[in-house]
Design a protein around this nucleic acid. Structure first.
Lengths: 335, 335
DNA sequence: TTGAAAGCGCTAACAT
DNA sequence: ATGTTAGCGCTTTCAA
């Protein structure tokens, strides 16, 4: 924790000018070998590393991407994040992570990192929109900083985004339930204000309409994507006069909560109740019974988002401003 | 994405000097109301936000903490991280997160953020030690930057750290198994090189010794903390000529994998095999059967680490350089 | 090939 | 109460 050496120290020690030290650092071939090694020696001696702030100030390079997610302990985001880190690493840029806990205030706080130029671009997961962006995004106005929307929940005019087709995948899930002969199909949906929730619910409705199956108000109960809420929603569903024989959960977490409620009642899956989740997170295969689910490609989503951001940084025109990734039905044993 | 205004633009627009603008920003009461509002108007007009790099360069405040964890999709770390974010927020400092995936190379890459002063301090989870620190930490030499060790796995002389007592908690887990009458107790341990793994294993040994119970080489199998490895380790344990009737898993993830293997064999928990995990992560309560486990206070650990870092920043002398947090036995249904 | 000097955007003495 | 000025640590013309 001793005092940090600056370029001056190096210059003095090596008996050269600041400019020479700087050159050794970034275009060493332009410095005579003798001095070059003198400088290198000094650098080694002081254990010198240039101050990144100062470098950045003088010669701004795009480099830091802020990634905002609603909840860091949600495995879907964790998985996406992981790949974002990986790809960003390769591409030589830095990742900053912010967790909003779905609070507007925290989101806005993080977004200050962009306006104050600590970060150069934003990859935004979740359904909240930063206050500063509210007007511009909706109206399709130019944005104050590079932005990529991920998981596709915010309604934004022409902003680059990467998502899956939530209504189609919701429909696919419910169709699978229908194909196995279920007639009384319920849904544990995501929280109401979020578009992902609404889209998956829409998929559920379409599948039911398509098959001419009954739809009842008390067969749709709203959770908040957590296991706890899944458990409670399922408990409630189990009290319905017409007990459902198939359940579509808008997230695997909720499905795992629901499974616990079903097991507690001594009911069997899929015999008594078939259950399908959404995400295919790491735990799905180890659930009891192993969870049938719709796979959302978290890793790919992360990668695509970073690549889009890079393209924006480079000033390339984005040929495909919204990328829709493939979802996939993963059949295990719960349905 | 238009050109960013600087303090000059504001000054010119408001017809005042740079200094006045700067003052309005940080000590507004020292500026006459008329000009103050003129400046504020200009700020609003340009939508001006000071460049954080430049601020930081001029007036360095300790503010950014780098948190390095092995695996972001491991819920234990996710949980700790969450609280770190929260506390740091309150304390007005920024968090950068780095994931090493247990690779020395990635760790060292992240540590450059410290030497180049993008970050001001490091909270290090996991058992890897950055290359730059190897000598100094072991020898107890002064460190090149503020460091707090969390989860207590690295052997470091007198570096501030926060951990739990892994051997005692391992012992507690196994004692619980013994108390329920188990005689043939196996362990699915963490990976060998890590001290946390070794300490929990030591706890297992002590408990067995204390009770005079048999210890067999094939009753200890090594996993890597993942569900997959837990599943495989359990499958292996199930082939032992003397089948264990109690299992201590060094992580809940491995325990959940092990549960799947046990269920597949049609064995019942805890009747045929009692199982105890470690961590008490979010999924433990929803496992089948709900997992008995040792609770590791992830959130507290995060909070304590941040507070220690703050103390170092402030130059306070740390009265208690190593904080040992309490673990706790959480009895559910698997043992 | 090298060095002097002018900034990058901001803050804080020091004057006034 | 306000403005002038000298940096923070670095990069990059521009001369030499």
């Amino acid at each position: 924790m001793s005092d940090t050496p600056t370029i001056h120290d190096i210059a003095k020690y090596a008996g050269v000018s600041l400019a020479t030290v700087s050159r050794v650092l970034r275009e060493p071939e332009k410095v005579a070998p003798v001095r070059r090694s003198k400088v290198r020696e000094a650098i080694a001696h002081f254990n010198y590393v240039p101050n990144a702030m100062a470098q950045q100030l003088r010669q701004p390079r795009f480099r830091t991407i802020l990634v905002i997610i609603p909840d860091i302990s949600n495995l879907f985001f964790a998985e996406a994040l992981k790949n974002i880190e990986n790809v960003a690493h390769q591409l030589g840029c830095r990742i900053l992570i912010g967790e909003t806990q779905r609070k507007q205030e925290r989101l806005d706080h993080y977004v200050e990192l962009l306006t104050s130029r600590v970060a150069d671009g934003l990859i935004l997961f979740g359904s909240l929109l930063p206050g500063v962006l509210r007007d511009s995004v909706e109206a399709g106005l130019p944005l104050p900083f590079p932005l990529v929307l991920a998981e596709g929940s915010v309604h934004a005019a022409n902003c680059p985004r990467v998502k899956i087709d939530n209504v189609q995948s919701g429909e696919m899930a419910v169709r699978h339930l229908i194909a196995s002969g279920r007639k009384r199909i319920a849904m544990i949906s995501g929280p109401r204000p979020y578009t992902v929730s609404m889209e998956r619910l829409e998929g559920y409705r379409r599948a039911l309409d398509g098959a001419g199956l009954e739809q009842r108000g008390d067969w749709v109960v709203e959770g908040n994507f957590s296991m706890e809420s899944g458990y409670e929603a399922m408990a409630q569903l189990l009290t319905c006069p017409e007990r459902p024989d198939g359940i579509f959960c808008a997230s695997d977490e909720m499905a795992i909560g629901a499974q616990a409620a079903i097991r507690e009642k001594g009911l069997r899956m899929p015999d008594d109740i078939a259950l399908i989740g959404f995400d295919d997170m790491r735990f799905a295969a180890y659930a009891s019974p192993p969870l049938t689910t719709i796979r959302q490609p978290a890793a790919q989503m992360g990668e695509a988002a970073v690549r889009m951001m890079q393209a924006i940084f480079r000033g390339e025109t984005i040929e495909q401003p919204t990328i829709i990734l493939d979802h996939e039905l993963v059949i295990r044993e719960s349905a």
